[in-house]
């Protein structure tokens, strides 16, 4: 069977699900951030495959922007994690409960 759009979309779905599972399951802020990157990458894969199979380059331009925004997001997020670690000496979500009622 010829590899088509569906195959790439299935891979993209599964990768997104993996990232989501990581965000739900893991308790380390850094690993949660890596899972977020996985989810962004899954979206990128879906966009590139849609772009390829619809013969339009616009999807790839969007992926270019997503990569830029993801890089900015990682920089800000990791700076936040470092600032948080300086204050609370932990990178674990279960220890960060000061907003709990």
């Amino acid at each position: 069977m010829q590899v088509g759009l569906e195959h790439y979309l299935v891979v993209s779905f599964l990768l997104f699900a993996l990232g989501l599972l990581g965000v739900v399951m893991r308790r380390n802020l850094l690993v949660i951030y890596m899972s977020l990157e996985l989810m962004l990458n899954a979206a990128n894969l879906a966009l590139v495959s849609f772009s390829r199979f619809n013969d339009k380059l616009d999807g790839q331009v969007l992926v270019f922007f997503i990569i830029t925004v993801a890089a900015a997001e990682v920089a800000v997020g990791l700076a936040l994690i470092v600032a948080l670690y300086r204050k609370r000496q932990t990178a674990h979500v279960e220890d960060l409960t000061s907003m709990k009622l």
Binding site: L18, M25, M34, L38
Partner: peptide, 11 residues
Amino acid sequence: LTLLCGVLVVA
């Protein structure tokens, strides 16, 4: 490879 390594990132 992508999915296998993705699993190993998460769990």
